[in-house]
Design a protein around this nucleic acid. Structure first.
Length: 927
RNA sequence: GCGGAUGUGGCGUAAUUGGUAGCCGCGCUAGACUUAGGAUCUAGUGUCGUAAGACGUGGGGGUUCGAGUCCCUUCAUCCGCACCA
C-alpha cells in the first residue's frame, strides 16, 4: 500500500480513544512526569496553525518521556470564562455557555485531528460548577487568612482575632491596610461590625476603596496586567483611574517570596526578568517630613536617603489625600484646577507628554527633618499615587525629573554628590541633573566626605535612631483587583450583612452562576448579576454582584488535573504528593505578568495552608515563539482593475492589496482562484512576467483581516497530521518567532513518504528483511538515536527533524530495509509522527501500540572509527583533507601533512613556523 | 530612557565545547520518465571569477595558530517595562 495518511491517522486516533491509551493513574512503580500546555481560551475563530506549536512540542516530549519509562501526566482543558463570549452574548442574546460549548467542541475536534496524547478523562473547563467550586473555595480561604510578615506566611484570621483579644494589634506585623494601633481592651469593646471592618484590612482577599483601572467601554474594572498604555489589552478601549470599592487579592504580601522563588525555577532569563521588573523591588527608607503649622507629616519613600541634604521642595501626587489637608486657602482654587486638569487627561496623554513639566504650589511648607529647612510642597502628575507613598522629596541636583521641575518653577538646586576626581560645580550652569550613583557626599552635614553607599547606611541608621523614618524595602507590585462587573465569570461566594461581606458556608458551594434576562449592566449601573432573580442567601442577604476575573480560573487548574473528579478536595494529598508540580510548562510570553505571577502567588498561598506540597507550580517553563503570518500582495494599478506582477510594478502607480495566501503558491497567484475570490476581481486584468503573476510578501501578524490565516484542518486534509506536526517543529527553534509558510511543507511530507518506502518494495508491498545489519547501517541508526535523544532533551525539535531526514536519506542510499534497524527508528520517530509509526509497527508484526515500546539504547561502539579525516588548514584556512589513524602521534601527523603532496603548493617552499595538531579535530599549519 | 532577544544564501534554518561556515528543507536551474504535472527520480545551486582563486555570518576594531562563536564599539529589527522616587 502507498502511504495513505488519511486512513492511517483516522484509524489510530480512534484506536487511542477506544483503548484509552493515554489515561494515566498514580503508579508508584514509575517516576512521574507532568507536562502541561497553557490551556486555551476557546475563541470563535478556532485554532490557526500557530496555536498548536507548543502543544506539538509538549506532545513530543510527553510521548518521549513515556517511552523512557515515565508515568506521564499530560492533560488538557479550557479556560472558558471570559470577555469575548460575553461580548458575543450581548450582541446576539445567546447565552455565553452555549457559544463556549460550541467553540470547545470545535477546538477539541481540531486538537484530536493532530493526534495529541492527552488524557482526556481529566478534561474540565473553568466554567464547570464542579471546577469553579474550588476557585470559590480558595477565595474563601484567602478571605479567611492574613499574611504574617514575621513568619512570612499566611495564617488563619482566627489566630489574628485571638491575638487582638489578648494583646491588641501592637505586636502584629501583617501585610495590611490598617495602621492604627489598638489595645486588647479597645478591640474587645468594639461591635462585631467594627471588628469585621478592621479584619477586612488584614484579609488576603479584601474589599476596599481602591484606585482602579475602570474601562467604561467594557463596563468593568481591570487588573494592571490587563491594561497596556492606558488601554485595555482585550479590545483596546480607553481605561481611566477611578476610586471604587473592589475585591483585591493581597498579592503584594508575597512580593518577596515571588521574587526569591524565581531563583529556584528553570525559566528563561527573559521571563524571569519581566517578573522581576513587575515585582520591582527597591531598597531605601521611609521618612517623615513634618508639615509646617500642622500636626501631621508627609511620608515619603526614597532609595537615596543620603541626598536628603539636597532636597529643596516636595511633590505630592494630585490624588494624594494630604493635598486637601495642606493646601492653603490662597491656593485652593489653583490646586483644584490643576487636579481637574490632570484628571481630564487620559493616562496615555500623560505618558506621551512626559517631557513637559506641570505642577502647582499648594501654599504649604514642609520641614526637612535633617536640615530643619522649610521647603515648599507642590503637586504634580509626575508623582504617581500608585508607587511608594504618592509623595517624594525632590532632589533636583541628582534627579532629572526633579531637575526639570526645579528649573520650571525656579526652585533651588543643590549639589550633594561629587565624583571622586571632580570638583563641585555651580548647578546654575547645568543642563541636566548630575549623576550620583557613585561619588562622595558634599554639603551634607555629618555624612560629608562619605562614599554614596556608606552615606546611605549612615543616614538610615541616623533617621531610625531619631525616629524620623526607617529602613524600607518597597515593591512596585500592586494588589490584584479581583472584581469584574461582568456576567461570564465565577460568582463570589460572598453575601452582605450591614454592608459588610461574609463568606457562604463551604458546603454551600458551588454558588452557581444564575440566569439573567440580559448580559448588560442594570439601569442603575449595577453589574449584570443584579438582574438575577433571587440573588440572595436563604436568609435574604444580598449576594455579591461582581464576578471573578479571567485569571481566577487559571490560577490553580494545573492542580485540579492531578485529581479532576475529587468532590471533597481541590486535589487529594495522595495525588498531589505523587504528581507534585508541573515538570514542563509551555505557553506564550503574553502571560508573563498575568497568569504566571497570579498562579505562583495562588500556589504559594495553598502551600502555606497545607493544600499543596510544592511552593512553585511550574518547575520548567518554555515560551514558544509566535507563529507570524506571511501575507501576500497583489498590486492594483490605481483607478483600474488591472494588476501588475511584483517585478514590473515599478513602472506603475500601484496600491498593494492583501490576497488570500491560500490561493497563492510559492508567491505565484492562482489567477482563476483570484477572479473567483471576490466578485470585484471577476474581470480583473493582469500584467504578467514570464507568464506568471508574482505576488509580493511580508511578515505580519496572523490575522483574518490580513488574509494570511492558515487553518491546521486544511493542512491535515492535504498532508496529514504527522506532516503538520513535523513541519511545525521543522520551522525553527521553539522559542523563536517565525513566519508560517505552507510552501515549505512538501519537504517534510516527502520525508514521510520516503520513510514509508523504506518498509515497502517498488509496488508498495510491505517488505522488510530479517538480515543482520551491516556496520554502516548500525552506525546510521545509532548516530540518529544519539542525536534525537540529545535534541529532545534540549527541546531542539527542529534539528531532530532534520536528523531524521538525514537518517532516512542515508538508509535509502544503503537500500536498507532491515527490521533490526527500521524498528528502532520507528520507536524514536513515534513521538514526532505517531500515526505512521503505529501503522508500520503493526505491519512489522507487533501486537498493540508503539507507545508501549522501549526506547532504543544508544551504543557508542557503533560510532567508533579507526581513522579520522583531518581538515588541514594553512594559516587557519582549510585547504585539503587527510585521513589519519585515530591514535596518531602529533609528530607522525605533522610528518604526514608535510610530506603530503597537497602541502607543497601551500607551503610555497617555506618552512612552517608551527603546526597545531588537535586530535580528532583539526591540523593547522602556520607559515 | 531602561531591560531583554535577534541579525548567517533568494527563503526557513544548521554549526551543543573557539577548530572544515552554510547541514536539512523550500525555491531556483538543468536533465530523465511522462498525454500532463503543484507527481516521481538524478545532478547542480553563498557571492565574484572561464578557471586557479579571492571574498564571505549587520558594520568597525581586538584577542587567538584559528572567531558565526570570546572581548570592545557601532548599527538595525523585534519584544517587555517606563515619570518607579
Amino acid at each position: 500500500m502507498e502511504y495513505n495518511f488519511k486512513d492511517i491517522e483516522k484509524k489510530w486516533q480512534e484506536y487511542w480513544s477506544v483503548n484509552k491509551s493515554f489515561e494515566t493513574t498514580i503508579n508508584k512503580e514509575k517516576p512521574k512526569y507532568y507536562v502541561l500546555d497553557m490551556f486555551p481560551y476557546p475563541s470563535g475563530a478556532g485554532l490557526h496553525v500557530g496555536h498548536p506549536l507548543g502543544y506539538i512540542a509538549t506532545d513530543i516530549y510527553s510521548r518521549f518521556k513515556r517511552l523512557q519509562g515515565f508515568n506521564v501526566l499530560h492533560p488538557m482543558g479550557y479556560d472558558a470564562f471570559g470577555l469575548p463570549a460575553e461580548q458575543y452574548a450581548i450582541q446576539t442574546g445567546q447565552h455565553p455557555a452555549i457559544t463556549t460549548d460550541i467553540n470547545i467542541k470545535r477546538y477539541k475536534e481540531q486538537l484530536n485531528k493532530i493526534g495529541f496524547s492527552y488524557d482526556w478523562s481529566r478534561e474540565f473547563r473553568t466554567c464547570d460548577p464542579e471546577y469553579y467550586k474550588w476557585t470559590q473555595r480558595v477565595f474563601i480561604e484567602l478571605f479567611e487568612h492574613w499574611y504574617n510578615t514575621d513568619t512570612k506566611k499566611a495564617e488563619p484570621i482566627s489566630n489574628l482575632v485571638k491575638e487582638f483579644e489578648i494583646n491588641g494589634n501592637k505586636q502584629v506585623h501583617a501585610a495590611c491596610n490598617e495602621t492604627r494601633i489598638f489595645t486588647s481592651s479597645e478591640w474587645n469593646t468594639k461591635t462585631d461590625d467594627e471588628k469585621q471592618t478592621i479584619l477586612l484590612n488584614y484579609r488576603l482577599a479584601y474589599l476596599a476603596d481602591t484606585m482602579v483601572n475602570w474601562c467604561p467601554k467594557l463596563g468593568t474594572v481591570l487588573a494592571n496586567d490587563e491594561v497596556k498604555d492606558g488601554f485595555s489589552v482585550r479590545g483596546g478601549h480607553p481605561v481611566e483611574q477611578k476610586k471604587m470599592k473592589q475585591w483585591s487579592l493581597r498579592i503584594s504580601a508575597y512580593a518577596e517570596r515571588l521574587l526569591n522563588g524565581l531563583d529556584t525555577i528553570d525559566w528563561s532569563e527573559s521571563i524571569k526578568e519581566v517578573q522581576k521588573n513587575w515585582i520591582g523591588r527597591s531598597e531605601g527608607a521611609e521618612m517623615l517630613f513634618p508639615v509646617k503649622g500642622k500636626d501631621f507629616s508627609i511620608e515619603i519613600f526614597t532609595t537615596r536617603p543620603d541626598t536628603t541634604w539636597g532636597v529643596s521642595f516636595m511633590v505630592l501626587a494630585p490624588e494624594n489625600e494630604l493635598v486637601d489637608k495642606i493646601t492653603t486657602s490662597e491656593y485652593k482654587k489653583a490646586v483644584k484646577d490643576y487636579i481637574s486638569e490632570t484628571k481630564k487627561r487620559s493616562e496615555r496623554e500623560r505618558m506621551a507628554d512626559a517631557k513637559s513639566v506641570s505642577g502647582q504650589f499648594t501654599g504649604a511648607y514642609a520641614v526637612n527633618p535633617l536640615t530643619n529647612q522649610e521647603i515648599p510642597v507642590y503637586i504634580s502628575d509626575y508623582v504617581l499615587m500608585g508607587y511608594g507613598t504618592g509623595a517624594i522629596m525632590a532632589v533636583p541636583g541628582h534627579d532629572s525629573r526633579d531637575f526639570k521641575f526645579a528649573r520650571h518653577f525656579s526652585l533651588p538646586i543643590i549639589q550633594v554628590v561629587v565624583k571622586e576626581d571632580e570638583q563641585e560645580s555651580n548647578p546654575a550652569t547645568w543642563s541636566d541633573s548630575y549623576d550620583s550613583k557613585e561619588g562622595i557626599m558634599i554639603n551634607s552635614g555629618f555624612i560629608n566626605g562619605l562614599l554614596v553607599t556608606d552615606a546611605i547606611e549612615k543616614t538610615i541608621q541616623y533617621i531610625e535612631e531619631k525616629g524620623i523614618g526607617n529602613r524600607k524595602v518597597n515593591y512596585r507590585l500592586r494588589d490584584a483587583i479581583f472584581s469584574r462587573q461582568r456576567y461570564w465569570g465565577e460568582p463570589f461566594p460572598i453575601y452582605f450583612k450591614n454592608g459588610l461581606p461574609y463568606t457562604l458556608p463551604k458546603d454551600n458551594l458551588p454558588l452557581e452562576l444564575p440566569g439573567v434576562d440580559a448580559f448588560l449592566p442594570t439601569e442603575k449601573g449595577e453589574p449584570p448579576l443584579a438582574r438575577a432573580k433571587n440573588w440572595k442567601t436563604a436568609d435574604g442577604y444580598p449576594l455579591e454582584l461582581s464576578t471573578m476575573p479571567g485569571f481566577a480560573g487559571s490560577s490553580a487548574y494545573y492542580l485540579r488535573y492531578m485529581d479532576p473528579k475529587n468532590p471533597d478536595e481541590l486535589v487529594s494529598k495522595e495525588s498531589n504528593q505523587y504528581w507534585r508540580n508541573v515538570d514542563l510548562y509551555i505557553g506564550g510570553t503574553e502571560h508573563a505578568t498575568g497568569h504566571l505571577i497570579y498562579s505562583r502567588f495562588w500556589n504559594k498561598f495553598l502551600f502555606d495552608i497545607g493544600w499543596v506540597c510544592e511552593e512553585e507550580p511550574f518547575k520548567k517553563l518554555i515560551n514558544q515563539g509566535m507563529i507570524q503570518g506571511r501575507s501576500n500582495f497583489v498590486y492594483r494599478i490605481k483607478n483600474t482593475n488591472k494588476f501588475v506582477s511584483l517585478n514590473l510594478k515599478r513602472e506603475y502607480d500601484t496600491t498593494p492589496i492583501h490576497v488570500d495566501v491560500n490561493i497563492v503558491h510559492n508567491d505565484i497567484l492562482d489567477i482563476e482562484a483570484f477572479r473567483n475570490w471576490n466578485p470585484e476581481y471577476k474581470n480583473a486584468e493582469f500584467i504578467l512576467e514570464d507568464g506568471k503573476y508574482i505576488c509580493g510578501h511580508a511578515v505580519e501578524k496572523m490575522s483574518k483581516s490580513l488574509y494570511n490565516v492558515v487553518n491546521p484542518d486544511d493542512v491535515i486534509e492535504q498532508y496529514g497530521a504527522d506532516t503538520l506536526r513535523m513541519y511545525e517543529m521543522f520551522l525553527g527553534p521553539l522559542e523563536m518567532s517565525k513566519p508560517w509558510d505552507t510552501n515549505g511543507i512538501d519537504g517534510v511530507h516527502k520525508f514521510l513518504k520516503k520513510f514509508w518506502k523504506l518498509f515497502h518494495d517498488e509496488s508498495f508491498n510491505f517488505n522488510i528483511s530479517e538480515e543482520k545489519p551491516e556496520k554502516v547501517e548500525l552506525k546510521v541508526l545509532h548516530k540518529t538515536i544519539k542525536k534525537i535523544q540529545e535534541d529532545i532533551e534540549r527541546f531542539s525539535f527542529n534539528t531532530s527533524v532534520s536528523a531524521f531526514m538525514i537518517c532516512v536519506n542515508e538508509l535509502n542510499e544503503l537500500k536498507c530495509n532491515k527490521r533490526s534497524i527500521l524498528e528502532n527508528l520507528l520507536v524514536i520517530l513515534s513521538p514526532f509522527a505517531p500515526h505512521i509509526t503505529e501503522e508500520l509497527w503493526v505491519l512489522c508484526g507487533h501486537n498493540g501500540s508503539i507507545i508501549n515500546a522501549k526506547l532504543p539504547v544508544f551504543d557508542e561502539s557503533y560510532l567508533k572509527e579507526t581513522n579520522f579525516e583531518y581538515p588541514v588548514s594553512f594559516n587557519g584556512k582549510m585547504r585539503f583533507k587527510l585521513e589519519l589513524p585515530l591514535g596518531i602521534l602529533p609528530k607522525d601527523a605533522e610528518n604526514a601533512v608535510l610530506s603530503n603532496e597537497n602541502s607543497q603548493k601551500w607551503l610555497e617552499g617555506k618552512q612552517p613556523k608551527k603546526i597545531i595538531f588537535v586530535p580528532n579535530k583539526i591540523i593547522n599549519v602556520v607559515i
